[in-house]
């Protein structure tokens, strides 16, 4: 009896909502065709891919883990992995808290127009491409002709080799990333802050709370869940790497710290024909990212946050 009734229930449910499901078809088809079908090409990682034969006609590699084995035995791969972790880790350490602070500061500005103008100015660099920024960096920071070094030279300092010495290159790389993205990343926090009930602030004011107290006890807790979600998402990116930023900025003298997985994959795979090797690396990269994402999410849930699913 029971299953029949639930079957009828389902039918009833479908009859009522079938139009909604119909509307879902297109987006689902989009995801399947453009997101999931291309994923089958991951099989390249366990095949001896020949660019002229295509993925399916290429023979399976022997043994299947051949390319993973090869990657893990290459020195350059470990170097690129280390650099990816180092650069992304530094990006997280510096690039994550600063936008929150900036958002809090912006939120405290009383003069609305000044606040808006400032906000716009700090997020504008986001719209410049890394190619342009790396070009600007060269114009500004080159040891002989760079404006910064010319000025430093006038002051009797330098020249400082911002782009061609290992440590300085990493610092420049992180600083430019901050400069470009910090303002943009505040937007989501500012939006979350506007969602906080103003009555809380009024009540705190009545109780005689200072500005810092209000930030600490109202604003920060109010955007805590946003912070956690963004942190989880950032954790998921720790091993994924953008391509244009490291590629545009690196040069022959700093490859030991500048070569990250994405540029390594590009150099060795796309330019060097070793597509199977690089899909293996790409797959490895994605799997590690997913692990990071899940563990960050689990951790967030353990601490009583909602996580992202």
């Amino acid at each position: 009896m029971k299953p029949k009734r639930s079957g009828r229930k389902t039918l009833l449910y479908l009859k009522r909502t079938w139009t909604l499901y119909l509307m879902l078809i297109l987006p689902v088809a989009f995801a399947v065709i453009f997101r999931y079908l291309p994923m089958t090409n991951i099989s390249m990682a366990v095949k001896d891919y020949n660019m002229f034969k295509g993925v399916w006609a290429s023979p399976w590699s022997d043994p299947l883990y051949k390319w993973f084995d090869k990657a893990f035995k290459t020195k350059d791969f470990w170097l690129a992995l280390r650099n990816t972790l180092m650069l992304n880790g530094l990006d997280l350490i510096f690039g994550f808290p600063l936008p929150i602070m900036l958002a809090l500061l912006l939120n405290e500005l009383a003069f609305r127009r000044y606040k808006r103008v400032t906000q716009t100015i700090v997020y504008l660099p986001h719209f410049l491409s890394w190619i342009i920024i790396s070009g600007m960096a060269r114009q500004l920071l080159a040891p002989r002709t760079g404006v910064v070094n010319v000025l430093l030279g006038k002051a009797g300092v330098g020249p400082i080799n911002f782009l061609m010495e290992h440590g300085l290159y990493v610092a420049t790389y992180i600083a430019l990333g901050l400069w470009k993205e910090m303002g943009w990343n505040t937007i989501i926090y500012l939006a979350a802050i506007t969602g906080i009930n103003p009555e809380l602030y009024e009540a705190a004011e009545v109780d005689g709370a200072s500005r810092l107290r209000k930030i600490w006890h109202i604003t920060l807790p109010g955007i805590r869940s946003t912070i956690i979600v963004l942190l989880i998402m950032n954790m998921g990116r720790i091993l994924g790497s953008e391509f244009d930023r490291p590629y545009a900025m690196q040069n022959d003298l700093v490859m030991k710290v500048a070569d990250v997985l994405s540029t390594y994959v590009y150099r060795v795979g796309i330019r060097g024909f070793q597509f199977s090797l690089t899909s293996a690396i790409g797959l490895f990269q994605s799997v590690v990212c997913v692990i990071f994402l899940f563990s960050a999410n689990a951790l967030a849930k353990r601490f009583g946050e909602r996580g992202i699913w």
């Binding site: 060269r138 080159a142 040891p143 002989r144 002709t145 782009l163 061609m164 040069n251 022959d252």
Partner: peptide, 8 residues
């Protein structure tokens, strides 16, 4: 030129 490495 000490910037040669930057010239791609």
């Amino acid at each position: 030129d000490n910037q040669f490495a930057l010239y791609k």
